[in-house]
């Protein structure tokens, strides 16, 4: 008999297996929604899917009565801008600081403990300070994302670089490499695929900080909308927005995974399918 660990589903079966839990969840939702609607035809908690589709269509095509903008588009643009800036800055900081801490023992002696301590500060706890220093505008939202996700990236990259076998560094030096050349030719190539993986893992936290920042003070954005309409329990807006955020995050994750495999195929040689 074949062992369970050796049963590999084929193409069609794979798609089917992937879809099944989603369909199951959708079915549970539809039943729950119908049940509540039967008890109270105005129920807002679990709106039927048709109603959510109507609301989504309206938010994605019709200009808003008050602002004249297409809400879903303007919210998405505002949020993605903040997210891209925050995640981009955090990646840049993570790579430079991480490689520096990993390659230079002196830098590590000085900065290592600091980064370790900073990465333990819950960013949400210092929000009032961020507001007073950076104001309530775009800056404080981007800074919150950076403070939240840069430290784990720095630490991960530093650890990756430190894990490079010392023989490689010695070899590079015997071939005449300076510190800078070693960084460029030995450390950086090995850190980059790991960087993409780390950033992938930080997409979730970055969204969390983005939405938290938008919930606190904003006039547009995905998190802003969700927390605004929560005031009148408009789940027909909130649930599609949650699905949309999930889709955006999933697409970003997927794109980064493809990018990593395309750019650094050597790093994935041992990967099982």
């Amino acid at each position: 008999m074949r062992r369970a660990m050796n049963i590999r589903p084929g193409g069609g079966a794979r798609v089917l297996l992937a879809l099944m839990p989603f369909l199951l969840l959708a079915l549970v939702y539809v039943f729950g929604s119908a049940e509540r609607r039967a008890a109270n035809p105005n129920d807002k908690l679990l709106p039927p899917i048709s109603e959510m589709a109507d609301t989504t269509a309206r938010m994605a095509t019709e200009p808003d009565r008050r602002s004249g903008e297409i809400v879903l588009v303007s919210d998405t643009v505002a949020s993605l801008q903040r997210l891209a800036l925050g995640l981009g800055l955090a990646t840049l900081i993570g790579l430079t600081l991480g490689v520096a801490l990993g390659v230079l023992p002196a830098a590590n002696a000085m900065g290592g403990p600091l980064v370790a301590v900073i990465s333990m500060i819950p960013p949400m706890a210092i929000l009032p300070i961020l507001f007073i220093v950076f104001g309530l505008g775009e800056m404080s939202k981007v800074v919150l994302i950076v403070i939240g996700v840069a430290p784990p990236i720095v630490r991960d990259i530093a650890m990756t670089v430190q894990a490079i076998p010392v023989e490689q560094l010695v070899k590079a030096q015997t071939l005449g490499a300076s510190t800078w050349t070693t960084v460029l030719r030995v450390a950086l190539p090995q850190a980059l695929p790991r960087l993409i993986e780390t950033v992938r893992l930080q997409i979730g936290p970055a969204f969390l900080f983005l939405i938290a920042a938008e919930a606190i003070a904003a006039d547009s954005g995905l998190g802003y909308r969700i927390f605004l309409v929560r005031r009148y329990l408009a789940m027909d807006v909130i649930l599609p927005y949650v699905a949309w955020i999930t889709l955006l995050a999933f697409l970003m994750d997927f794109a980064l995974a493809k990018l990593a495999r395309g750019a650094f195929p050597w790093a994935y040689v041992g990967e099982r399918r």
Partner: peptide, 9 residues
Amino acid sequence: KVVNTSDAD
């Protein structure tokens, strides 16, 4: 211009 701000903050 109205900016939504959490009461806690």
